[in-house]
């Protein structure tokens, strides 16, 4: 039975992805900083779907530990999905380097570090799938998401490059670009209902896209066009806008 590794499994999207893939009869490996929190999810998944599910400790910011973390996994996952990310208050982060740095490292450096390790293993085996969850925010830099968007832009670019690098070795890389999603990350933001997804919708779409081996998906689909329009606004105009 195939196994999926979920990096950042205590997030709302991480937990719903776990349930979704479990319903497709995948064994589940949950990785998070506090794996002890995930015991209820382990029993939930095991009871509902009859698949194996266990949790392991993983810290995205402890780059030095990533190689050992992955080599200790037994069995090795067939799919690895990188879900972790962080959105701090941008104004505070602008004034506090620690926050800025943490946002960059969690959303970008940490992902690169662990996915490099995993990609090397998949390339050697000539098999495997990597799914990275980035954000539509990375499609264009703007004041209200200054650091977050730039880190996500870097992550999106990394995933594109990784897809290109891995292709000849039959390793598939999928980029997921969610728009607004109702999660812990966004619970204090007023989100427009019509274009906001639930974590369940995100998980459903990722699962379907995985089965179809898609390269890049927007969640939901119309975000591709919303971002296209935003990208088409000329810079001399864009810089004056409040976005």
């Amino acid at each position: 039975m195939a196994t999926i590794l979920i990096l950042g499994a205590t997030s709302d999207i991480g937990m719903t992805i776990a349930r979704k893939f479990a319903s497709g009869k995948f064994d589940i490996l949950l990785a998070a900083r506090k794996p002890e929190q995930l015991q209820p999810l382990e029993s939930d998944i095991h009871i509902r779907y009859g698949v194996n599910c266990r949790s392991v400790a993983f810290d995205a910011l402890q780059y030095g530990s990533h190689s050992e973390f992955f080599s200790s996994l037994q069995p090795k996952p067939d799919i690895s999905i990188c879900v972790f990310g962080i959105l701090d208050d941008e104004e505070q982060a602008f004034n506090d380097w620690h926050l800025t740095e943490r946002m960059i490292h969690t959303n970008y450096t940490g992902g690169v570090s662990i996915l490099n390790v995993i990609a090397k293993y998949y390339i050697a085996r000539k098999k495997g799938t990597i799914i990275g969850i980035s954000s539509v925010a990375g499609d264009r830099g703007r004041a209200s998401k200054l650091i977050y968007a730039s880190a996500k832009a870097a992550f999106t670019t990394y995933l594109a490059g990784l897809r290109n690098k891995c292709f000849k070795d039959q390793v598939h890389v999928m980029t997921v670009q969610p728009g607004f999603v109702y999660t812990k990350m966004t619970e204090n933001l007023p989100l427009p209902k019509l274009i906001t997804s639930t974590p369940e919708e995100v998980a459903d779409l990722i699962y379907k896209a995985y089965l179809k081996k898609k390269n890049i998906i927007y969640v939901k689909w119309f975000w591709r066009y919303i971002m296209l329009i935003i990208q088409c606004i000329p810079e001399f105009q864009f810089k004056k806008m409040k976005l």
Binding site: D12, P40, S43
Partner: peptide, 19 residues
Amino acid sequence: LKFDKILSFDRQAGIFECQ
């Protein structure tokens, strides 16, 4: 609503435990 995990289900005795 997000505290919704099944903690145990004894299929023999019919005892169910959840959040």
